[in-house]
C-alpha cells in the first residue's frame, strides 16, 4: 500500500502532460472546424493556417482551445474522451455486442490464457530437460534464445497463414503466437530456479542416496517456485501482446487487436485508444493476479522475501 502515492504521482504527471499535449496536437483540426462554423479564426485562410505553428495558432485563438478536447476524430483524444469511450463500450452496451470491449476482451483473453498455458507447460518441460540432460542444455538453449530474436510482427502472419492453409483458424493460431512469446521467460527462470539449490543441499540428498526424481520433487521443484512466479508475470503480459499481434495481420473480426485496427482504418481514434487502454488494464490485472498468487504461495512456503 505504500506504493500507492508514488504510483498516483506518476499517473497524475502523465495525465497532466497528456492533457496539455491535446491542445497543440488538435489545434489545427479544431480551428478548421471552428472556421467552418461561425467563429472568426486568425488567420482566416485554411491554407495559411497550415503554415502557422501549433503553439502560435493556439495563442492567437484562445477561444478555439476548449474545442480541441471535444473533436469527434481528434489526432490525440483528451483523457476524458477515452474514459467516456471506455465507459460506453464496457458498461453501456451488452457484453455480447460487437461494440463491447468485454466481448473483444474475452476473445483476446481466451487466446492469451490458452497460449500462456501452452507456453508455460512447454517452458517448464524444456527447463526440466535442460537441467537433467547435458545434451539438451547444449542444444536447446541457443535455439530458445535465437527464437526470441525474430521479430514477432514478421513471424505472426506466417504462423496465421500456414495454419490457415492447414484449415486451423481462430483461437489456436493466436494462442501459438502467445505461447511462442511466453515460453521463453519460463525456460530461463525455471532453469535458474531448478539449479538454485546449493552444493550443500545436493550433498545432503546424496548422503540419503536419493535418486534424481526424488531430488527433483523434494528439492529442485519447490526451490524453483520463486523463479517460476517471476517468469509467469513476464510470460502472461507477453502472452497478451502475442494474442493482440496475432489479431493484427489477418483482419480478425474480434479482439483488442481487431478493434485497434478498425479504429485506425476507419479514422476512429477513440476506438483505437479505448482498445489500447483496455488491453493495458487487462495486462495490469493479469500481472496483479499473479503477483497476489505469488505473495500468498511464497508466504505459505516460508519463502516470502
Amino acid at each position: 500500500m505504500r506504493s500507492v502515492l508514488p504510483v498516483l504521482t506518476i499517473v497524475a504527471f502523465i495525465l497532466g502532460f497528456w492533457t496539455l499535449a491535446v491542445v497543440p496536437m488538435n489545434i489545427h483540426l479544431a480551428a478548421d472546424q471552428a472556421a467552418r462554423g461561425d467563429m472568426v479564426v486568425e488567420p482566416d485562410d485554411a491554407r495559411a493556417r497550415q503554415e502557422v505553428g501549433a503553439f502560435a495558432l493556439a495563442l492567437g485563438n484562445p477561444a478555439v482551445i476548449p474545442m480541441t478536447y471535444t473533436l469527434d476524430r481528434p489526432r490525440l483524444p483528451g483523457p476524458q474522451q477515452v474514459v467516456v469511450e471506455l465507459w460506453n463500450t464496457v458498461f453501456a452496451v451488452a457484453p455480447t455486442s460487437n461494440r463491447s470491449l468485454i466481448y473483444h476482451g474475452w476473445v483476446t483473453l481466451s487466446a492469451t490464457l490458452l497460449g500462456f498455458g501452452m507456453g508455460t507447460a512447454l517452458g517448464i518441460a524444456l527447463a526440466v530437460g535442460i537441467v537433467f540432460s547435458r545434451t539438451m542444455d547444449l542444444s536447446v538453449m541457443p535455439w530458445a534464445i535465437a527464437s526470441q530474436t525474430i521479430p514477432i510482427l514478421a513471424l505472426a502472419p506466417m504462423i496465421i497463414v500456414v495454419m490457415g492453409a492447414l484449415g486451423i483458424q481462430g483461437l489456436l493460431p493466436k494462442a501459438i503466437i502467445s505461447a511462442y512469446l511466453s515460453f521463453f521467460p519460463v525456460v530461463v527462470g525455471m532453469v535458474k530456479g531448478l539449479r538454485s539449490p546449493d552444493a550443500m543441499q545436493l550433498d545432503l540428498l546424496r548422503t540419503y542416496s536419493a535418486g534424481p526424481a526424488q531430488g527433483f520433487w523434494k528439492l529442485r521443484l519447490p526451490a524453483s517456485v520463486p523463479y517460476l512466479f517471476a517468469s509467469l508475470k513476464i510470460g502472461i503480459s507477453a502472452s497478451l501482446v502475442g494474442a493482440i499481434v496475432g489479431e493484427l495481420p489477418t483482419g480478425a473480426r474480434a479482439g483488442f487487436g481487431a478493434r485497434m485496427l478498425v479504429g485506425d482504418q476507419y479514422g476512429q481514434p477513440l476506438v483505437t485508444w479505448a482498445a489500447l487502454f483496455a488491453a493495458a488494464i487487462t495486462a495490469a490485472a493479469l500481472v496483479g493476479l499473479f503477483a497476489a498468487l505469488e505473495r500468498v504461495t511464497l508466504k505459505r512456503m516460508g519463502m516470502a522475501a
Binding site: 550443500m200 548422503t207 523434494k218 528439492l219 517456485v225 519463502m303
Partner: peptide, 25 residues
C-alpha cells in the same frame, strides 16, 4: 547421518517435515 555447517532446512517444510525428509526418501 551427515550434519553440515549450515542447518540447510527446507524453508517450505515445517521442522517435522524437514526431519521427515530422509524418511520419505
Amino acid at each position: 547421518g551427515y550434519v553440515f555447517q549450515a542447518a540447510g532446512l527446507y524453508p517450505w517444510r515445517t521442522i517435522g517435515g524437514n526431519v521427515k525428509l530422509p524418511l520419505e526418501i
